[in-house]
Design a protein around this nucleic acid. Structure first.
Lengths: 223, 223
DNA sequence: CTTGACACAGAACAGGCGTTCGGTTATCAT
DNA sequence: ATGATAACCGAACGCCTGTTCTGTGTCAAG
């Protein structure tokens, strides 16, 4: 028989970690000790328990004693994590006002999953929503056609925050950094190559939300 | 006593769903029927079972019969999901070559969590890595200072793919759309306002990887 | 009033499942 | 050789847990 001298983790440990991960991916709950044994060619539950204890000592696993399937993978092994499901409300484009989920009648055909750990500040509110940018009108905000922007509903903003605004007078939706100034507002593009839009006090701006995150998937591109 | 006429889900159902979600967030495994009962003020396991069956009929829950804690939330209720943990290898900036995780000696001080469902194509390979952009040198790629780019190691690319390249002759790292042409290569910026870089056949380009995704967190901005 | 669906309680049963303990084998340092 | 240690096995014990069955009170329709 194979004998290893108790240092670090061996092939058997790896196999068990891998099995727990794949099992949990499939069933969404951890396996039992006996299930681990079956799939890792260990005929005795006590041996599985033996390995599990070692993995716990190594800090790769945590166990809730006495609780069925009470184990969880730690660190890089853990395939599961908290995530936010953000409803994808539709598209945002220059010519049309964006649709903010005003209370109930929202039907997210699709949704976007974001890892909790990636969320800035503590915008962990459940009222976030996402829009897909259509067209090149947001280039000056460094946002491409097809990008997904995650927004948090808001009516006002603090200086330096990027907001989605509906410019009533200009009949335009845009994403800009917001600055309140003495004679009105300054809407600053993210791209320094573009000039800011100055809004006089008599004009109205309609802040729809704060931009929390921008995601761009690089699928492919037309030639 | 309260009596509801069997249509849809009521307050009790909501409470149970909420408890399962929060329990799973905390323990990383589902609760037992008795645990649900305790926290939802249901004194009999049969009643919990009763509600669980209804939730399953409503399609909000799935159950593995006979299996301890064998339940999972479906759809928007599910707080857990498959995610990829991508190692954050460091920074990418114009003046320096990027460090690609060449096999083993990689020490991801930090990592980035991406929902599996957000991954383009089937780049579900585990060899992805992330870099944080430093400086404004990638503006022409529509990528800001501070953005995080997810890369897939590659030595060559197909037309239309965005790649990270090290331009040996120019001593520069850049992100561009890649096009092979008759007399060399054309590296096209994402921002149409910028001109492409033409690479002659005698110059060498060193493709480091393909850009799979770009993520921008909008924390705040300096005034 | 009767009937029946519905919401719920409680207890008992049976299998699931973690734990424990006595034993066995193989390797290695002394 | 020999004792120590690591890596197993098998079975038994007992709590954990899902399931099932009987029973009760409420409310609305007939």
């Amino acid at each position: 028989m194979m004998v290893r001298k108790s240092k670090g983790i061996g092939e058997r440990h790896q196999k068990i970690l891998g099995f727990i991960a794949s099992y949990q991916r499939e069933h969404k709950h951890p396996p039992s000790i006996r299930e681990i044994g079956e799939h890792c060619d260990i005929s005795s539950t006590s041996v599985v328990n033996y390995y599990l204890d070692q993995l716990e000592k190594e800090g790769l696993l945590e166990r809730d004693r006495k609780i069925s399937r009470g184990m969880r993978l730690i660190g890089d092994n853990n395939p599961l994590g908290d995530m936010l499901r953000v409803p994808l409300m539709g598209v945002i484009q220059a010519g049309e006002p964006i649709l903010v989920p005003s209370e109930s009648p929202f039907t997210p055909e699709d949704s976007v999953e974001i890892a909790m750990s990636m969320m800035p500040s503590r915008e962990k509110g459940k009222d976030l929503f996402a829009l897909q940018v259509q067209g090149d009108s947001m280039i000056d905000a460094m946002i491409n056609d097809g990008d997904i922007v995650i927004l948090k509903p808001a009516q006002d903003a603090r200086n330096g925050e990027m907001v989605a605004v509906w410019l009533t007078e200009r009949n335009e939706t845009t994403l800009k950094y917001y600055y309140k100034e003495k004679d009105g507002y300054r809407l600053q593009p993210a791209n320094p190559a573009f000039k800011p839009i100055m809004i006089k006090k008599n004009e109205t701006i309609d802040i729809k939300g704060k931009v929390v995150m921008v995601i761009r998937k690089m699928e492919r591109m037309a030639a």
